[in-house]
Design a protein around this nucleic acid. Structure first.
Lengths: 138, 138
DNA sequence: ATGCACCTTCCAGTCACTGGAAGGTCAAGC
DNA sequence: GCTTGACCTTCCAGTGACTGGAAGGTGCAT
């Protein structure tokens, strides 16, 4: 099957498949006589694997590690678990960061009357040295 | 004051200040006879403003809009509020996405015994067509 | 005069793609 | 056999927001 069909079956765009090949995440595909890339079902499964891992937010680097473990019949599940736990920790940090940002912003939005008058606690928070005076910087 | 001092006072790295100038977020700085960039306190305030807005996760594009509103003495606070609310909505979507990812991963990690045996529900979830068999793709 | 820390510009790399141009291939229809 | 259109190929460039490094000029103290 050609790259377009593999893309449709796997859900990974053709451009992205070529990109994954280029960076070495997947090995170079076989070629037809005309130079077209040629894929079997097994490669499509690999692409689906990559797609699912990426949609869970694993970096392409981590996906490479997961693929290697997937291919290794003798792998220890602890190795997979470790990668997943590291990723959950990173996700947790990101969530905490975003929640802090959200809280700050919601407090500011709550205090901003949001009408056609110029005074705005949001800008005042961003520029505490010159509350509401405008045009200090440039 | 030169760029290094402005960087120290504002918390924005010198490289990043040059970058902000290059993309037009801040106007070109004045220059000394020798060609060094020269900053006054007002420019440092602008950089602090940018730094705070960026740390709240506003895109550089949004920061440009906020800066313009800050400089506009007649701005409507509603305009600022709208930008902030749009950003909160984006932050919310991101949080929800990350929480979904986290839940999925935690469920998988919980089911993975994480020892030196090869069977692992995490890989099985990523490759449902060939649970635990290994090496299907390449 | 020499050293060192600072400044300048420009180019390249990060991450994970994505778009587009220029040109080759395949299959269908006439 | 020829055209048409949808595919494929490679290569280059751009995204966002920086960051690192090289090569060379400047400022100041000794």
């Amino acid at each position: 099957m050609n790259i377009g069909q593999a893309a449709k079956k796997s859900g990974v765009p053709a451009k992205t498949i070529r990109y994954y090949e280029e960076i070495g995440l997947i090995p170079p595909a076989g070629r037809t006589a005309a130079g077209y890339r040629d894929y079997a079902d097994a490669e499509v499964e690999t692409l689906k694997f990559i797609n699912r891992a990426r949609s869970l937010g694993f970096s392409v680097h981590d996906v490479g590690d997961l693929l290697a473990l997937w291919r290794d019949r003798g792998r220890a599940s602890a190795d997979v678990r470790r990668i997943a736990q590291g990723h959950v920790a990173a996700v947790d940090r990101k969530i905490a960061e975003l929640q802090a940002i959200k809280q700050t912003l919601e407090g500011l939005i709550h205090r901003c009357h949001g009408d056609d008058r110029p005074d705005c606690p949001i800008l005042e928070e961003l520029a505490p040295a010159c509350c509401g005076s405008g045009g200090q910087g440039l």
